[in-house]
Design a protein around this nucleic acid. Structure first.
Length: 269
DNA sequence: ATGCCCGTCCGTGACGGA
């Protein structure tokens, strides 16, 4: 079974590349983030032509997550358990953003997550990020009681260690590398999940994101923020994991590359 | 070469992204 996660930065803008990628890599399950469309505008027919069923949690302009699966999708859940909302500047009510969707695909419990960015340390969005991560931990705890194997894939917007950013000095005082954010990842590992580390390819560090600006990709000024957190059953069944850097090349790429994880089905039984 | 931000919106700049 091949699992993958990809922040596509608009499924509309990325559709030709997405379809090419599905055709060539043929994942069984693909978690998408930042689809930036509502469910009605998701190109479900186009991916159905390639054999994929789709579950969408999206509201339009911002964020949005989805799961594409060639295996049957069951027990769909949109949003986390006790999910916090965010109060935008000047708004009167909290907004529940579409950032998490869970489904059982061919017997594997899969979550596609897009963790809030945080913007700046101390910003309300940063506090929201930490609350959201606590709700993710609680959701994982609740689901592990009844569903395994279980795996959370997505854009976590956290670099787990200093080795996961191209220059730690550049990120001092920034979001994505702070102790509370990394502690939230440690919490997920305490909950029984393992960070499935992609193997190194061209470079030692398997980055998944490179800014569009300033030749970041050719210079490999990247970050590893797209993660695969697997429970013990699934982690033990992993036969390969890598970042598909090819998908970051050429015309009109996302600023993120997909992470691909191959799993031995027999080891899941 | 992988090449010097991109995507969205009743929108032509502001905002979010990380």
């Amino acid at each position: 079974m091949r699992l993958a996660t990809w922040n596509v930065n608009s499924v509309t803008a990325r559709l030709p590349r997405l379809l090419d990628w599905l055709g060539s890599r043929e994942p069984d399950v693909l978690c998408l983030q930042e689809i930036k469309v509502g469910a009605d505008d998701f190109p479900a027919a186009a991916v159905a032509d390639l054999g994929y069923d789709v579950a969408v949690h999206g509201t339009g302009r911002w964020a949005g997550v989805a799961i594409l699966s060639r295996r049957p999708i069951d027990d769909l859940r949109r949003g986390l358990i006790d999910e916090p909302g965010f109060l935008p500047d000047g708004a009167m009510f909290e907004v529940h953003e579409p950032r998490a969707i869970g489904a059982t695909c061919g017997g594997v419990r899969v979550w596609s997550v897009y963790v809030p960015n945080g913007r700046e340390v101390g910003h309300p969005h940063y506090e929201y990020k930490l609350r959201w991560l606590a709700a993710l931990r609680a959701t994982v705890d609740a689901e592990r009681m009844q569903s395994r194997p279980l795996v959370v894939l997505g854009d976590f917007n956290i670099a787990p260690t200093d080795a996961d950013v191209w220059d730690p000095n550049v990120f001092v005082g920034s979001t994505h590398v702070t102790e509370p954010e990394r502690a939230a990842l440690a919490d997920l590992r305490d909950a029984g999940l393992t960070d499935v580390l992609p193997r190194a390819q061209k470079y030692d560090a398997p980055y998944t994101y490179w800014d569009y600006r300033q030749l970041s990709f050719p210079k490999n000024r990247g970050m590893r923020i797209d993660l695969v957190y697997a429970d013990a059953t699934l982690a033990a069944a992993v036969t390969d994991a890598y970042v598909d850097r090819e998908a970051r090349k050429g015309d009109a790429p996302s600023d993120h590359a997909p992470v691909v994880v191959d799993v031995d089905d027999d080891a899941l039984q």
